[in-house]
Design a protein around this nucleic acid. Structure first.
Lengths: 147, 147
DNA sequence: AGTTACAGTTTACAATTGTAATCGGTCGGT
DNA sequence: ACCGACCGATTACAATTGTAAACTGTAACT
């Protein structure tokens, strides 16, 4: 593990990454064209985002003639996992399950995905603890941890 | 629906909210004491966070003598759902399922929660579409959308 | 060879966030 | 009646982020 420090990608930057992840590799012209359609961002704005992503180490550049070809340096699934995990980790451990349940209800997923999730959960069931305690208060959470 | 605009709570603010959510109502002294244990935040820092949360409409204040009693104005579960949904929504629709799977594998949950999730998913299975397409590129994603 | 056009870099600037000191008012104690 | 402790408000300041203009270099076209 070398580049483990986990680059953080901001919301706007995330849009750029999705383009590059999907196309695997592109030039800035393409990114700018595609993004200018979805949002009404000026080319300059998108250039800034690309530049920041390169500086952050999220995108690699390969010089090709006068321009660059951009490639993702961090895998999409990896970024997704990290982002979701970070979000979840800052929440009360006791309530995470319910939050995920609500999100699942509202997320459209393919049959295969739903089945995959069921499998993962089925595998978890036997080893799952009976209770997971609230970790919102410091120390041993003296008494006040109910609900 | 009146206050629907959905306050955004920053990471540091989230810590404060968790205290208030767990205690249901408290004064700043308590919040400061508890948080100063978990992080090494100066009391002034925590006061700032509380102030911002009040201004944002995330905390209500009730004057009690010289001080205030703080109460959550937005429900915890609600904030959790919104935060997770926002995060997910900015990701490629096609890959959300897998991302959730990875997160599930790493999240500790009670047996009851795991079972609840299984139930939710079982109910989703019949109506789940066969495929969910990538929505990373604009327009009709002309051809270039493969895995 | 000169100019255009575009790629990438630099600079800009306001809003949000993390982190905190200081100020001003008041309640409680001496 | 005065002082101190403490609460909440005001001010501060750097980093990150959203948004974008301006600058610079060079490849391509005339």
């Amino acid at each position: 593990m070398a580049t483990a420090v986990a680059v953080t990608i901001s919301d706007a930057e995330w849009r750029v990454m999705r383009i590059v992840w999907t196309l695997k590799q592109t030039d800035s012209r393409t990114i700018i064209n595609l993004l200018a359609q979805q949002h009404d961002w000026k080319p300059a704005t998108i250039k800034t985002l690309i530049g920041r992503l390169v500086k952050k180490g999220a995108l690699a550049t390969t010089k090709q003639g006068r321009q660059f070809i951009y490639t993702p340096l961090i895998p999409e699934q990896n970024a997704m996992d990290t982002a979701l995990t970070n979000e979840l980790d800052q929440m009360c451990a006791m309530h995470r399950g319910t939050a995920i349940a609500h999100v699942l209800e509202q997320t459209e997923m393919s049959k295969a995905d739903v089945q995959q999730l069921i499998d993962v959960l089925a595998k978890k069931l036997p080893t799952a603890p009976d209770t997971v305690h609230c970790d919102c208060l410091p120390g041993d959470c003296e008494g006040s941890c109910e609900s």
